[in-house]
Design a protein around this nucleic acid. Structure first.
Lengths: 216, 216
DNA sequence: GAATTGTAAACTGTCCTACAATCCACAAAA
DNA sequence: TTTTGTGGATTGTAGGACAGTTTACAATTC
């Protein structure tokens, strides 16, 4: 007998703590600039300090919180430079991802892309900003995963949440109605296996939304 | 009275542990595939398990070691796919770095680049492989730092040591005599402030050395 | 009053001990 | 040969302890 597809959830407390605290930050429960006190978090979540400590290290690596020796951790506050960095890095990583995705696109991959795209399209008509943002990110994430490049994905994940935090805490007004549409050509290029065009469309898609014109 | 420029070295044990263990790995004292046992490291370096634990987390993030739950950490062993990933990621990050560096080059920046280049040139005539590799990396690192892009640098640092580990553990024969020369045009382009050419030269420089022809 | 210096509180950095959970190799059994 | 214990090693996690450091603020000095 082989094990059934259902597997037991065996997530370490460290991992759970990371997810939990990250959620609190992204939800805005813990605001930018606010401090994270090891001992208080440990008490709140009924964990040991050591476990919380590891979790904070990891979130620090994700760039959501920053450390000052003997003072502690606090949620980052983004500057103009930070935003510029995030956008430019996204361009570098996603343009490569798009090119690779186009090179190795499969029927299953196309399906996944189109599903993600349709989800985004639907939400753009009726959904909340929250959910649109989520779907948008989901589409980009799909592209990155289709590139089948573990390190690229890892580096992308590393800045993904910083981007989310920025979106949620800034009050930029996005033209909701055009978001889905601005992805159409990118998706088409990838599905068509046109690597060069996919790369260019990725650059355009990110650049036209971001504040890249005002580079420092 | 103002404090003199000499500052006191106040490095946390966690950080020192990271540096120490990383050194052991890069020196080959701990070989790829070998296990890292928390309690043994703690005893060897006279540290507590908690401190070692944090250090291992960090090295895991750098991709030098990998974790299996309840089993422990061991030094990574690179596959063909890994090497391909490292090279392609380097291209993505360094081509952007070169472009930015060219855009914001200053006299001081030129000086730094040329110094690094000359060091490399000199070593290519007389130095050991070890030192040439070090100087080569130093030059690339200078470019990345001249881009003045904190996140780009952070992501570069994250794969830098994986690359070093690969170089040290693989027995690829590098044409030592051509290494310095292959950087000349890149350096020139950056110093000339020619962003587009710098970007292209960066791609060429990395690609012509690496095994990118045999992409998976 | 401004600058310096002392002081207490809060928190991090680090260590220790302890024990349950888990993996793994190997022996025992079917 | 395959399955099923079983024990040892190591990780995962908790909790307590205390020194080191920062910080705000009070006390002191000029």
């Amino acid at each position: 007998m082989t094990a059934s597809p259902r597997t037991i959830n065996k997530i370490s407390l460290e991992d759970q703590a990371v997810d939990l605290i990250r959620e609190q930050i992204l939800e805005g429960v813990i605001q930018p600039g606010e401090r994270l006190v090891e001992s208080r978090l440990a008490k709140d979540y009924a964990l040991s300090r050591g476990t919380v400590r590891i979790a904070l290290q990891r979130l620090g690596n994700e760039g959501l919180i920053e450390q000052r020796p003997y003072v502690g951790w606090r949620v980052v506050e983004f500057t103009e430079q930070d935003i510029w960095e995030l956008y430019t890095l996204r361009v570098a990583l996603e343009s490569m991802a798009s090119r690779l995705a186009a090179q190795r696109i499969t029927p299953a991959g196309k399906q996944r892309l189109l599903d993600a795209f349709e989800t985004l399209e639907a939400l753009c008509r009726t959904g909340s900003i929250e959910r649109i943002t989520q779907a948008d990110l989901g589409l980009h994430l799909a592209i990155v995963e289709l590139a089948e490049h573990a390190r690229l994905k890892k580096q992308y994940d590393l800045i993904k949440n910083q981007f989310l935090l920025y979106i949620k805490t800034s009050n930029r007004d996005f033209r909701v109605d055009t978001i889905a549409e601005s992805h159409r050509e990118l998706i088409e290029a990838i599905c068509a296996g046109d690597a060069a065009r996919a790369e260019q469309e990725a650059i355009r898609n990110i650049t036209e939304l971001g504040p890249l014109n005002s580079a420092p």
